[in-house]
Write a protein that binds this DNA or RNA. Structure first.
Length: 605
DNA sequence: GCCGTTTTCGGCCCGACTGTTTTCAGTCG
């Protein structure tokens, strides 16, 4: 939780550490009552750095401060601080700020219902500088002595502290999707409701979901709100109005909903498009849309697109020019429709203006799956069952890629068993051919990349395979340079087709290992090796930011499920949407290729 | 602190809900 020093991230000053530092600077300046636009600048800078594929250190070494200033959201002031951080590992400005601010104040700032004004006045007036001190003061009624703090505020603060203490991090996307699906079915039954759907980060398919945003279209908003706040799994009603309500769900069995916050907005059918744009976000995307609208003498809100007078008033009755559909909203701003996954203010509006938006990959573009496991290693189903499930999905091919011998916990195959499996798959394919089916099982392996960068099967055996998927499964703590060299050695071996889950992360459980992804991607490009998007909701690896970089560098991608059972092929949608967030098009994806062309890519054609 | 198909200075999105207020500030998304 404490991100007050860069040194803990090691000598390498990486983007993530710099972004966190600037976000903290924004928080501190805000509590200090600094100009809110200056605060915004640091916050925007932090977000821009976080969504950057290339490391700032590299950009700085290649082009110095001028190259930094070229980056969106980075100006003279922030660039100078980045330079100082890169060259000296520290920033005097940041250190002075940190020293002047007790860390507990930032915890208070992040409590629900607390903002910079209240946090600042608590500190200045009562000297409250930690959650513990705040709790003690609230419990004894001390807070009510402050102007603007009443009894209800005190109770809300105590409640916020309670949920702060039990908070277990953001909910994984798969959990949030399941919760949202249940609520959507429930709300659809309410009288007057014509549609309910998930908006917010869920619709944008972010890998972590802070809260669930639902949008209902209804002519009877009050009935919807009654039903929503009365749902049996609601633990707390945070707020309830005629168009907007917020609840917190109970931590259900097995932590399924784990105190998830859900926002519901209800609007009328005429507002459907503008409401969906508004509630899908992201916030940064909406701000960019509204700035553009303003420059054109227009105003965008959840209620539509309006003409405004010079004084900023809505021009006149009937001056609403769009709002019924999302397309109409974008069109009124002179833009084509922008897919939800792209709406992060990462250049999508500029691309839309230039007509260079990508034609994003869709699940129906996929011809097969290139990573799965069977009972031969740690899978739950026999080869035949996995093959039949893949055929039922309409795939043309499926690669069987069981683990190699070093991964003993997964019953990895030794050379003899892999050879046996190869023969078995040959027989199976022959049977398919005889029965006139065009489906093909590809003989493969998910071979371990050992600590020294060598592969866990002998070359002669790997040469017999159609496809080799290589992955790191051990030694995650290896230092950055070594790990980079290890993976690049595998790429340069000439035996590998795909690098699987390239950072090894497990969302919310295990950090990605240290690796120079840009160097890995450049090597992959040079040696015609594809990078995997692993579709496990816990992995989503590569992530959106790395995929965008891969696309820019011209690296091919494989979207795979890594299924360990036939019912896990459905996870493919997570991989597809993550790829879409990385601006990936069908032509970038090797499993969008027909079998013959895929085999040529694999060097087997 | 950032930024520029009105600007290198003067702007910097829009609206709902709550609580403590006699008309609005603070917070949130």
């Amino acid at each position: 939780m404490d991100n007050r020093t860069l040194t803990e991230s090691g000598p390498q000053v990486n983007n993530r550490a710099i972004a966190r530092l600037f976000a903290t600077v924004a928080d501190i300046l805000e509590v200090k009552g600094e100009n809110r636009f200056r605060v915004l600048s640091y916050r925007n800078g932090a977000e821009a750095i976080d969504s950057m594929g290339s490391e700032l250190t590299g950009i700085y070494h290649d082009g110095g401060v001028p190259a930094l200033i070229e980056l969106p959201g980075i100006g003279k002031g922030i660039a100078a601080k980045i330079e100082e951080l890169i060259t000296t590992g520290r920033s005097l400005f940041v250190e002075e700020l940190l020293e002047s601010t007790p860390p507990g104040i930032l915890d208070i700032l992040h409590l629900a219902g607390m903002g910079p004004k209240k946090t600042g006045s608590l500190y200045r007036e009562l000297g409250i500088d930690s959650i513990e001190a705040l709790e003690a003061a609230a419990a004894t009624g001390k807070l009510q002595t402050l102007p603007g703090f009443g009894e209800k505020t005190e109770q809300k603060i105590l409640k916020a502290i309670e949920s702060f203490k039990s908070f277990s991090g953001r909910n994984r996307i798969s959990i949030a999707r399941a919760v949202a699906a249940g609520l959507i079915e429930y709300l659809k039954e309410v009288s007057g409701v014509t549609s309910v759907e998930a908006a917010g980060s869920l619709r944008r398919w972010r890998e972590n979901i802070g809260d669930v945003d639902l949008l209902a279209i209804s002519t009877e908003p009050l009935a919807v709100m009654e039903a929503f706040t009365g749902h049996p799994s609601v633990a707390t009603v945070v707020m309830k109005g005629s168009t907007r309500s917020t609840v917190v769900l109970e931590s259900g069995g097995g932590g399924r909903s784990s105190g998830l916050q859900v926002d519901l907005r209800v609007l009328s059918p005429d507002d459907y498009g503008s409401a969906l744009v508004h509630f899908t976000g992201s916030k940064a995307h909406n701000v960019a849309l509204r700035e553009r609208a303003k420059a054109k003498g227009l105003k965008v809100s959840e209620y539509g697109v309006f003409r405004v007078t010079a004084a900023g008033e809505v021009a006149a009755e009937g001056e609403r020019i769009a709002g019924a559909t999302e397309e109409s909203v974008y069109s009124a701003l002179g833009l084509p429709f922008i897919a939800p996954e792209l709406r992060e203010d990462r250049g999508e509006i500029e691309a839309a203006l230039e007509g260079t938006l990508p034609t994003l990959v869709e699940q129906s573009d996929l011809r097969g799956d290139l990573h799965c496991h069977t009972v031969w290693s740690d899978g739950a189903c026999p080869i035949e069952e996995m093959a039949e499930a893949a055929m039922a999905l309409g795939y043309d091919y499926l690669a069987v890629t069981d683990h190699s011998r070093s991964l003993t916990v997964a019953h990895g195959l030794d050379s003899a068993r892999l050879a046996e499996q190869i023969d078995k798959i040959d027989v199976y394919n022959e049977k398919l051919r005889e029965s006139g089916k065009s489906f093909r099982l590809l003989k493969g392996s998910e071979v371990d990349i050992l600590s020294d960068g060598t592969l866990d099967h002998p070359d002669v055996l790997l040469a017999r395979l159609d496809i080799v998927v290589a992955a790191v499964h051990s030694g995650f703590g290896m230092e950055r340079a070594k790990m980079t060299a290890r993976v690049i050695a595998a790429i340069e071996s000439g035996r590998v087709n795909i690098i699987a889950h390239p950072t090894g992360r497990l969302i919310g459980m295990r950090e990605p290992f240290e690796i120079d992804m840009e160097a890995v991607l450049r090597a992959a490009k040079e040696h015609h090796v594809a990078m995997e998007v692993n579709s496990y909701p816990e992995r989503l690896d590569l992530n959106d930011v790395h995929l965008r970089l891969a696309k820019e560098l011209g690296v091919k991608v494989a979207i795979s499920t890594d299924a360990h059972a036939a019912d896990q092929f459905v996870n493919m949608e997570y991989g597809v949407h993550t790829a879409r967030r990385g601006w990936i098009e069908p032509e970038d994806v090797i499993n969008c290729l027909p079998l013959e062309e895929l085999l040529r890519f694999l060097g087997k054609g």
